[in-house]
Design a protein around this nucleic acid. Structure first.
Length: 444
RNA sequence: GUCCCCAUCGUCUAGAGGUCUAGGACAUCGCCCUUUCACGGCGACAACACGAGUUCGAAUCUCGUUGGGGACGCCA
């Protein structure tokens, strides 16, 4: 049974990068008829916030990602204690006393010496007396995992294929902080074992972590799950894809901007693959298309404009019934089937409805048109009006055809260069509306 | 600096030694359709980072260079 987890830390907002990983995990679980587990990695009590947690849950619900199981790391601390004790008893973790300043100094020296920036394990050779002295001086120990530094960690990554990293090139990771709290590196492994995770699907930025965590997996469990490291989205035009706060690419932002969740699914599930981004794709087709093996290995540049474009296409396909509920939320007065059918092809976001409601029912920016022509518009106007007839008459009297004929009408009636089909616009404005706008244009 | 990963049109990519005058999709531009916006149809533009090697033959294999991304936290 496939079991995967999405494990965000509630220290900021979800963004396209995060959510892409969530979607990939979800799709993989569904494809294999497995379980999708949501786990909030909130071991860092100082940074984790309830507010951020709420945003994450709402974002996932908005996307339609349903989790089969839910956990918080802050509720699993007793399990980490058991694991830590086991590691202590077999000597795989050891106490250290260096301060952050001392460590950063060591790193600086190593850097100038061109030596690898690795903890020198000085604490390992501390005598019991020296350790006691430290503690007497008020220093509290924190604990490092002793990596098996003779080993070269090797695994067959679902995306990359063979990856190998010598553990000798990595620092012994700190697992327990001086206050006794546990660091993600340990907590995550313990939970993944406890939750019987079969596949860890995460970003490329975790590759080094994986080497470390595999060693920890081995130490406490004897085996480890399969890994898929997905190349990170890279930015285009200097927009930081993974900025945690106030990112223009945060999901909260997109929700508020009226982005279609399905646009996000189509793009994020297929970006970095040979699959085309098709607005018609649903969960089923995306599931079928998913293949880690076929995923490209270089980090794809991500262009947020694509979201807008796909959103537009998806909205244009929607029926009035599909959007009724969304439209009601916007609290507009003039919502009707006719109105929707008129404007639906011109929306980049469902919120653009507000704009078109104003244009079609309220007021426009008047752009002065050729007075002679506008007078002809008024003269040929009949009540009750017949659009086709009106255009015919107007064409005859003015000698205009095609764009020359329609564009000025569009300008007079909407104040815009483009928009919905004019026959529909006129249908909504009615005789009085059309007449009023023509007169206003003459007055201006 | 140390370690890891990567390199084909503007963007996402196909391509596993000859079928590549390098294919598709999005974007852009043009034409057609519609006496208008859009949709749709057709078409155009546009790429193998560089240098050596291996080979009869290299986008494809090897090495190097350059360039990009990531990791190196008492974050996750």
């Amino acid at each position: 049974m496939v079991r995967v987890r999405f494990a965000p830390s509630p220290t900021g907002l979800l963004h396209v990068g995060n959510v892409r990983i969530a979607i990939l995990n979800y799709l993989f679980a569904k494809k294999n008829k497995g379980k999708f587990i949501l786990r909030l990695d909130d071991t860092d009590q100082e940074r984790s916030t309830k507010e951020s947690e709420n945003f994450i849950l709402e974002d996932l619900k908005w996307l339609g990602i349903q989790w089969d199981e839910f956990y918080r790391q802050s509720e699993n601390i007793s399990k980490y204690e058991i694991a830590a004790n086991r590691l202590k008893s077999c000597g795989r973790i050891y106490p250290c006393y260096e301060t952050k300043e001392e460590l950063s100094l060591k790193r600086k020296i190593q850097s100038t010496k061109m030596a690898p920036p690795i903890y020198d394990r000085a604490a390992l050779s501390l005598t019991e007396q020296e350790a006691k002295k430290m503690e007497a001086a008020g220093r509290k120990p924190y604990w490092r995992f002793r990596l098996n530094d003779t080993q070269v960690m090797e695994w067959t990554d679902l995306v990359h294929g063979k990856i190998s990293i010598p553990l000798s090139s990595i620092s012994d990771p700190i697992l327990i902080k001086p206050d006794g709290s546990f660091v993600y590196t340990l907590a995550s492994v313990v939970d993944d074992i406890d939750m019987r995770i079969t596949h860890i699907i995460r970003g490329d930025d975790h590759i080094t972590n994986t080497a470390v965590q595999m060693d920890i997996f081995q130490a406490i469990f004897g085996k480890y799950p399969a890994f898929a490291h997905v190349p990170l989205l890279s930015s285009i035009d200097g927009i930081d894809v993974s900025k945690r706060y106030r990112s223009p690419l945060s999901i909260v932002n997109m929700r508020n901007d009226g982005v279609e969740p399905r646009a996000l699914w189509c793009i994020l599930a297929t970006h970095g693959t040979a699959n085309n981004k098709d607005p018609a794709d649903n969960l089923e087709t995306l599931m079928k298309k998913l293949s880690f093996e076929k995923m490209s290995l270089s980090s794809p540049k991500f262009n947020p404009e694509e979201i807008k474009l796909l959103t537009k296409k998806i909205i244009a396909e929607k029926s009035f019934d599909d959007v009724k509920a969304d439209l009601e939320k916007l609290k507009l007065k003039n919502i009707s089937q006719k109105f929707w059918d008129t404007i639906k092809g011109n929306l980049y976001s469902i919120k653009d409805v507000v704009f078109w409601e104003e244009i079609l029912f309220d007021k426009i920016d008047i752009i002065k048109e050729d007075e002679n022509f506008v007078n002809q518009m008024l003269k040929t106007l009949q009540n009750p009006m017949d659009f086709e007839q009106w255009i015919k008459d107007l064409s005859q009297i003015s000698g205009r055809r095609g764009k020359n004929l329609f564009h000025p009408i569009r300008i007079v009636l909407t104040g815009l260069n483009n928009g919905p089909e004019l026959i529909k616009v006129v249908g909504l404005l009615g005789y009085d509306g059309v007449k009023l706008r023509i007169e206003n244009n003459l007055k201006a």
